[in-house]
Simulated scan of single mutants.
Amino acid sequence: MNSIAEITDKKPEFVDALLDWYDHNARTLPWRISPEAKRGGIKPDPYHVWLSEIMLQQTTVATVKSYFEKFMEKWPTLEKLAEADLDDVLTEWAGLGYYARARNLYKCARTIHDDLGGNFPKTNDELLKLPGIGVYTAAAISSIAYDIPETVVDGNVERVLSRLCQIETPLPDSRPEIRGHAEILTPDYRPGDYAQALMDLGATICTPKSPKCGSCPLQEDCLARKNDLVADLPRRKNKKEKETRRGYVFWAEYDGKVWLRRRPEKGLLGGMMEVPSDEWAPSNSWQNIPTPRIPIIANWKLLPGVVRHTFTHFHLELKVVKLQLEEMINLQEGEWCDIDKQDQYALPTVMKKVFNHVGQPLLDL
């Protein structure tokens, strides 16, 4: 495979080798219909495909499995999800991160239920009109759920094609070239299985470290293997070091209740509940963080230690100041919530860490 022309010439053999491997080695996943089941006439449920793809964005398969199963138990159909309460959805989502995905998931379910008669769209153009569905997700749904030949490129596919075609331009600059190869190789037959086969190959054989090249069905055509470059590809641009932000959270407690408030709908952790906090300011030292503005005039105490959490673009450190009240006070915002019912609130992982830091264990982080 030294050129696009040669890739095109070998496409049938390439696709057949990959699909044959997939038929014998497909991962068993709770949202997937196996090749054998598909041959028996069972079709993928677009609701399952869509839900799993949204969950899998920036999250590992191992993590998503249990979340998917919990969602299926609570909302087995799109109709049930559309009729749910957003807070319940956010609560079940807690721990998966990127909470805008959960809000868009809910909006999408409502749109399909209310405006499309509960029928999932099939084509890319229709799918791209829905909240939270981008180019990759639309292609994955069309391909996997409906066997429409669309080009599906995720991180696993990028790695496989970078090595197969020896693409030495660093990511993300190489993405247009990778997509060009991917579009040429996407078949008209069994496109859903083909897409899942490439993803499985990247997840189980063509792994980032210690790839199992001897077990790869595409090893004879892999340019990186021929030229001893597998360990070097895909290349990546050097990432900028994440900044650290710091701030304070205010734990006010009264008679088994804690003060919680909802974050703004837009922005980081939008719509989630939090222990009230001040601004999370970029800083290279706690010495540069000013004394916090206390939200309630009272005898607050600074707890020892720091709560640490990492988001996609920055590290976060929080110090906790605590107030033990003897009598109830009226809050200008937020509400008093039962500490022992914390699993009923849509708390993000960083706030679960705050609970644990204060000495109020939550569900597993």
Rank of each mutant, 00 (worst) to 15 (best):
I289D: 02
G214F: 10
R27F: 10
T151D: 14
N227L: 10
L81Q: 03
E168S: 08
D188I: 12
T8D: 14
V89W: 05
D88C: 07
D338S: 12
R235M: 07
G359C: 07
L302R: 08
I141N: 01
D232K: 06
K209S: 06
A100R: 07
R39Q: 13
R236S: 12
D278Y: 10
V153R: 11
I329T: 02
I148D: 04
K70S: 14
C165K: 09
V249K: 01
K10W: 14
G305P: 02
P276S: 01
A26D: 04
G155L: 13
N284G: 15
Y345F: 15
D115K: 00
E253T: 06
K239A: 15
K353Q: 03
Q360R: 13
S174E: 12
N104V: 00
A109H: 00
I133C: 00
V160D: 03
D232V: 04
T91M: 10
D232M: 07
L198W: 10
L302T: 09
V157M: 14
D338A: 12
A82T: 00
I33Y: 08
G270T: 02
I184P: 09
A84H: 07
H315Q: 10
V321F: 09
K301L: 05
K237R: 10
L229P: 03
Q58S: 04
E53Y: 14
D200Q: 02
A26L: 03
G334H: 12
I178S: 09
L90A: 03
G97H: 00
N156L: 15
V64N: 07
K11W: 11
P149M: 09
E274Y: 08
K257G: 03
K301Y: 05
L223R: 15
L365Q: 02
K74A: 09
L19Y: 06
P12H: 00
Y254F: 15
R293C: 07
A195P: 13
V306K: 02
L233F: 04
K242T: 12
R175F: 15
W251A: 12
I141E: 01
W259N: 03
I167H: 06
G132P: 00
Y106M: 02
Q166T: 07
A281Y: 09
L105C: 01
R262N: 08
Y136K: 14
D16F: 08
A17P: 05
L56P: 06
E177V: 12
P121A: 00
G41W: 12
W31R: 05
R261D: 14
C222F: 04
G117F: 04
L86M: 14
P211M: 04
L19G: 01
I205T: 07
D228T: 09
N227P: 03
N227H: 12
D188Q: 15
L96K: 00
Q219I: 14
T91E: 13
R159C: 10
Y136M: 15
G40I: 09
E79S: 13
L223E: 13
C206T: 08
E241Y: 08
G41V: 11
L171F: 11
V89N: 00
L268Y: 12
N227F: 08
I167N: 06
T244L: 13
G41D: 11
I144C: 11
Y189I: 12
L96Q: 01
R235P: 06
I7Q: 10
N330P: 01
L365K: 02
E6K: 13
H113D: 07
P170C: 11
P211I: 04
G134W: 06
K237W: 04
Y99I: 05
E333T: 12
Y254M: 07
I54A: 00
G334N: 07
N288I: 08
